[in-house]
Every structure is written in structure tokens, then in C-alpha cells.
Write a protein that binds this DNA or RNA. Structure first.
Length: 489
RNA sequence: GGUCGGUUUGCCGAGUGGCUAGGCGCUGGUCUGCAAAACCAGUUACAGCGGUUCGAGUCCGCUACCGACCUCCA
């Protein structure tokens, strides 16, 4: 690769050249979902953003270990230290075992991620499976002196930490501001400061999920699981930590504090954050009640949806925007993406019809270089997509006889689309091709041949009747010069 | 209130100070028995005001509006 990969590091607020700690190995950790509700468009944004990164790193021939966790405990509601565990709450409401709730939503998440054509992470650890490790981590923080015990709960001492290190390096927050701004809520008297966060929390009697420890029967704090599991599987120092921008503070800031307290420095070299999906300009979020689930998108079963959108439409929609920009949901935008993607796929299909010439009048190498440049510039997929559409114009020009392409260049162009569209953007074609191979497709073609015959005999009444009949059944007919093509709508 | 980000052509959405992003839509054309589909062409905007510069969506300042985080969130 002529140009190196640059990625935006939230820590430095700059695009930095990506240089792995131990090439060709790359450690990538991404905050996955808290499994207490249906996977929604926001989950898809994060997952797809980092799936893109994962795919591109692999394309660049890095050996990537991709860890994406699942939060199934320790994630509290309303207040990080006093609220009720989200999973436990759901379980109580639905009279289910907590792990039953967890399993249900993990299945839902996996199912939807698979439909979005996400590659599976190398490791997908559950917080509940790492209680011992988290307790050990708490122990280390206690030994480092940056935590204190109160009534069986362990809290991180942010103020003390701030005297030796600096709290707030990622979010740009300063502790003095936090002192004046952190909202005072009731029942926080256990903590020295309101911005201290729980590492281990003693369980109240109604709390369903708890484990024994030397401090109390309790459960780990939310921020702890990511510090524990990322360093367990990727080492004390690793390359990339990703997640949604909404996790930047306090979650990721606390992770940095925890790791630094134990290891003396932050574990993460590059912090990457995807931006939010908005709905009418407002963040789409579970807690705001305006999140549309992925299942709804795929079925079209939601008052705000004018129709069903395929997983690939959703994926392409996101690829047309940069991962660090907010992306506003609308039916118009989704439908525009759907049509654009169809045009892209049609163009790629046309590739197979090209006959190579002795020489090229088109510059495929240049196109390829532009695609790489776009991706190397902090994964600029909108620019990449624009180049891919330029390539589609080239394909049509060749088929029109306006341009020529040599055999090697044709292979190169095919490889380009295969690599970038299917490999890196992670798009895949629908199942229309499958339909074409079975009996019904043969029937459709037989009927269309009869129509063609009628047209030749200028029996337009019959041919139009057949056309109306098939359109009624959802078959789209595309008349060509000497024949026809068709598609299931 | 504090911190940070945004305001781009009808819509979505990129833009590294100087030459057309791209998609959708729209208009015209090609093809066609008609239509549809497809393809081709056209469609030059950068919230406001001031400044820096030979030259500014692009840098600086101010104003207006919108949003994110500061509480769980992808």
C-alpha cells in the first residue's frame, strides 16, 4: 500500500497513522450491547462501523483479534451505583431467569447482526463469565491505593487518582467541572465524591444477580468488565478500543482510569468512536423511547416505516455516511440508499458481460488507488462509494463501446469490486438469484417467452395482458432489444 | 449552566484554501408497438456578519439555530 492507514484517535482528537504495537497482529476491542432489549439501528451503527474496520484491517493483511463483549451484568439503571441491574429488572418484570433474558436478547442480537452480514468477532466474552477476573482487577486497584471500601462496596477514588494521573484525558473533562456539575442524587452518601464510580457493589436483597466476594455478596461495576476482558484477551496494551460516542464519558474514561491505576498507563493506543443515528435530529436511543428495532426495519412493521428495508439497504445507508458523523434516519434517505445500491449491484453484474480488448482506454489502477486513499483516510466510505459509482460509469462506457479494457485490467476491475463492495463494505446481493434457479423461475420465463412470441406477431393485446398479469404477481419485466430480463419485486 | 460537535444545492451526504464528490429526486434524451426498466446528459450549494489571504464551505472572531455528553445508552 502506497499510503498508510490513518484513523481518528479520540484521545488526540487527530487523525493518526495506524501503527500496530505488534505487527502484523492487531488487537481490537469494541463495546457490544447490554442485552436487555431488542437490537436497534444504533447497535447496527456501532457494529457495522467496527465490522468495516475489522474487514479493512484484514484486507490489509493484519492478523486481527477482534473482541466484542456482551454486557449481561453490572449495568445499572438510572444511576450507575444505586440503580437496579437492567437485566435483573427485565427478568423480574417478565418473571424469567436473568440468564433467560440474557440468552433471549443475545440470540436476537446475533440473529440481526448475521443478517447485516457482520463477521463474527474472534472472542465474544460475557461479563457474567468473568466475575473472578473482575474481582482480581478490583483487588489490584485496591492494592494500588486508588479505591476504597464502604459497606461492602468498592469505589474508585477519582480525586486521588487525579493527583497522580489525570482524570478526563479522553473526554476533555476536568475534575473541578465535574465537582460542580455532577448531579447530586439521593443515597450517594457512601461515596467520597459523586463522580467516584463503583467497582464492586454489594447486592441488596431484591437483587437477583450476585456473587460472593471477600468484600460482600455483590456484583461488579459496569466499567470494570471492559477493562478486565480487554486486557485479559488482548494484553495490558493493545491497539484499538472502539464504541459509540455516547460511551466516551463516563464509561471509557473510567476504563482508562482503572487500567492506568493498575498498569501505570492506559491500555489503549487508539480510541475510536462511532457517531449516533438520529431520528428527526434527535439521538435514537432505547432510553429515549425512539429506537426502531432492526427486526422492525427488516419487516417494515413500525408506524414510522413506510416499507420494509433489507439488511443490506441498512448497511449501505450507513456506508454512505462517515462513521464519525451523525446520520439522520428517514424513509426518503433509506429509499435513496436502496435504489443506489441496486444500481451499484446492477453495474457489477454488467462486469460479466464485458469482452476484453487488446488495450485499455480506462485507468483502473487510478480508480483502485482512489479507493484505497478513501479507506486510508479514516475509513471514508462515502468517498469510496462515490468512486465505486464512477467505476460503474466506466463499466457502462465499455459496454457502450466508448471505452475499451484489457484482459488484465478487467480482472483488476472485477477484483476491485469484489474486494471493496463485498469484502470491505460487507455488502452482499439479495436472494433474487436464488429465486431464478427454481421451478417458478422457469415458469416465468416460459410465460415471458410466450409474450415475446405475441409481440413478434404484433399481438400486443395478448402481450400486454401477460405483462399486467405478471406485474400483478410482483414480477418486474425489463424489455430488452432482443428479449427480456425480469426480477422479483 | 459546563464541555464538545454540527449548520452544504429539492432530499441524503462527502469535502486536504485555488479546478465537477457521490447517491436519490427532477428535467431532457436514447431505446421501445406503447409503457416500464435500463443507459446517457443537465441540475454548482455551502446559516448570518466581519476578518486573514492574490484566492475561503475549507482558516480566525462574533451572532443565530441544532445536537451530543455531563444519568443508563451503540
Amino acid at each position: 500500500m502506497k499510503t498508510p492507514l490513518y484513523i481518528y484517535n479520540t484521545l488526540s482528537k487527530k487523525k493518526e497513522e495506524f501503527m500496530p504495537l505488534n505487527p502484523p497482529h492487531v488487537g481490537l476491542y469494541v463495546c457490544g450491547p447490554t442485552v436487555y432489549g431488542d437490537a436497534h439501528l444504533g447497535h447496527a451503527r456501532a457494529a457495522i462501523s467496527f465490522d468495516l474496520l475489522y474487514r479493512y484491517l484484514k484486507y490489509l493483511e493484519y492478523k486481527v483479534r477482534y473482541v466484542r463483549n456482551i454486557t449481561d451484568v453490572g449495568h445499572l439503571e438510572s444511576n450507575a451505583d444505586e440503580g437496579e441491574d437492567k437485566v435483573a429488572k427485565k427478568a423480574r418484570l417478565e418473571q424469567l431467569e436473568p440468564m433467560e433474558v440474557v440468552q433471549y436478547y443475545i440470540n436476537d442480537y446475533h440473529h440481526n447482526m448475521l443478517r447485516l452480514n457482520l463477521l463474527e468477532p474472534s472472542i465474544e466474552p460475557l461479563a457474567s463469565g468473568h466475575i473472578i477476573e473482575q474481582q482480581q482487577f478490583v483487588d489490584k486497584i485496591l492494592k494500588s491505593g486508588f479505591a476504597y471500601e464502604k459497606n461492602g462496596s468498592i469505589y474508585f477514588d477519582v480525586e486521588k487518582y487525579n493527583t497522580k494521573y489525570k482524570y478526563g484525558i479522553l473526554s476533555g473533562r476536568v475534575i473541578e467541572d465535574l465537582k460542580s456539575n455532577t448531579r447530586e442524587l439521593e443515597g450517594q452518601s457512601e461515596k467520597k465524591n459523586p463522580f467516584d464510580f463503583a467497582l464492586w457493589k454489594k447486592a441488596t436483597p431484591e437483587h437477583l444477580m450476585h456473587w460472593p466476594s471477600e468484600w460482600s455478596e455483590g456484583f461488579p461495576g459496569w466499567h470494570l468488565e471492559c477493562s478486565t476482558m480487554s486486557t485479559k484477551y488482548l494484553g495490558k496494551e493493545f491497539d484499538i478500543h472502539g464504541g459509540g460516542m455516547d460511551l466516551l464519558f463516563p464509561h471509557h474514561e473510567c476504563e482508562i482510569a482503572q487500567s492506568t491505576a493498575v498498569h501505570g498507563k492506559s491500555s489503549v493506543k487508539y480510541w475510536m468512536h462511532n457517531n449516533m443515528i438520529t431520528l428527526n435530529g434527535q439521538k435514537m436511543g432505547k432510553s429515549l423511547g425512539n429506537a426502531i428495532s432492526l427486526s422492525d426495519f427488516f419487516s417494515g412493521n413500525h408506524p414510522l416505516l413506510e416499507k420494509a428495508y433489507s439488511p443490506m439497504t441498512v448497511r449501505f445507508f450507513m456506508m454512505q455516511a462517515h462513521y464519525r458523523s451523525t446520520l439522520d434516519f428517514s424513509n426518503a434517505a433509506l429509499q435513496a440508499a436502496e435504489k443506489g445500491m441496486e444500481r451499484l449491484f446492477r453495474g457489477i453484474d454488467e462486469l460479466e458481460k464485458i469482452n476484453p480488448s487488446d488495450s485499455s482506454t480506462v485507468n483502473i489502477e487510478d480508480l483502485e488507488e482512489k479507493c484505497h486513499l478513501a479507506m486510508n483516510d479514516d475509513l471514508n466510505t462515502p468517498i469510496l462509494v462515490s468512486h465505486l459509482f464512477d467505476g460503474i460509469k466506466i463499466i457502462h462506457s465499455i459496454l457502450d463501446g466508448k471505452e475499451t479494457i484489457s484482459g488484465p485490467d478487467l480482472d483488476r476491475l472485477k477484483a476491485l469490486y469484489s474486494n471493496f463492495v463485498f469484502g470491505i463494505l460487507g455488502l452482499k446481493k439479495g436472494n433474487k438469484e436464488q429465486v431464478k434457479s427454481d421451478l417458478s423461475s422457469e415458469l416465468i420465463e416460459t410465460i415471458l417467452n410466450l409474450r415475446l412470441e405475441a409481440k413478434r406477431k404484433k399481438d400486443f393485446e395478448t402481450s400486454d395482458q401477460i405483462r399486467d398479469f405478471l406485474i400483478e404477481l410482483g414480477v418486474e419485466i425489463k424489455d430488452k432489444k432482443d428479449g427480456f430480463e425480469w426480477e422479483i419485486k
